Amino acid sequence: MIATIMKTFLLDTEFYGQPCDVEFVDVGAPLGSRDRLARRYSLRDLTLWTERRLTDRLSIISEALDAVSSSDRVLRHPRAWSRPEPEMPLFD
Rank of each mutant, 00 (worst) to 15 (best):
V68G: 04
A64C: 06
I5V: 09
T50C: 03
F15M: 12
A3D: 01
R44E: 05
L75N: 05
H77Y: 13
R52A: 10
T50H: 02
F91T: 15
P78M: 08
E23F: 05
K7Y: 03
D45V: 00
D26I: 07
D66M: 12
I61S: 04
R83H: 09
P84C: 14
A67D: 12
Y41P: 08
G28V: 05
D12P: 02
L10M: 09
E23Y: 06
S33C: 15
R40Y: 14
D21V: 00
F15V: 10
E51M: 01
Y41W: 13
R39S: 15
L11N: 04
V22M: 07
R44D: 06
S69R: 15
L10T: 08
C20Q: 04
L58V: 05
L31P: 11
L10A: 09
L11P: 03
V25D: 08
Y41K: 10
V27E: 15
A3G: 06
R39G: 13
R52W: 01
P78L: 07
K7S: 03
A29C: 14
P78N: 10
A29D: 09
V74Q: 04
I2D: 09
D72I: 06
I5K: 08
S59Y: 03
A64F: 11
G32V: 06
E23C: 09
E85F: 06
I61E: 08
F15N: 13
R44Q: 10
M6Q: 06
S82C: 14
S82R: 15
D56K: 07
L65H: 05
D21Y: 01
Y16H: 11
V22N: 02
R52S: 08
V74A: 09
T55V: 08
S71Q: 07
M6W: 04
D56F: 08
I60H: 09
L43V: 01
D26S: 11
D72V: 06
D21H: 02
D45F: 01
I2L: 14
P84V: 13
F15C: 11
F9I: 01
T13M: 08
D66A: 09
R73N: 14
P86G: 08
W81E: 15
S70T: 07
F9T: 02
L48K: 08
D56Q: 13
A3C: 04
E23R: 09
P78E: 12
L54N: 03
R79M: 04
I5P: 00
P89C: 10
P78S: 09
S62E: 12
E87C: 12
T8I: 04
R73F: 14
S82L: 15
T13Y: 07
S71N: 05
Q18D: 07
I61G: 00
V74W: 10
W49E: 09
S59D: 12
F24K: 01
D35N: 13
D56V: 02
T47G: 07
K7R: 11
D26F: 03
C20P: 00
P84Y: 14
L43S: 06
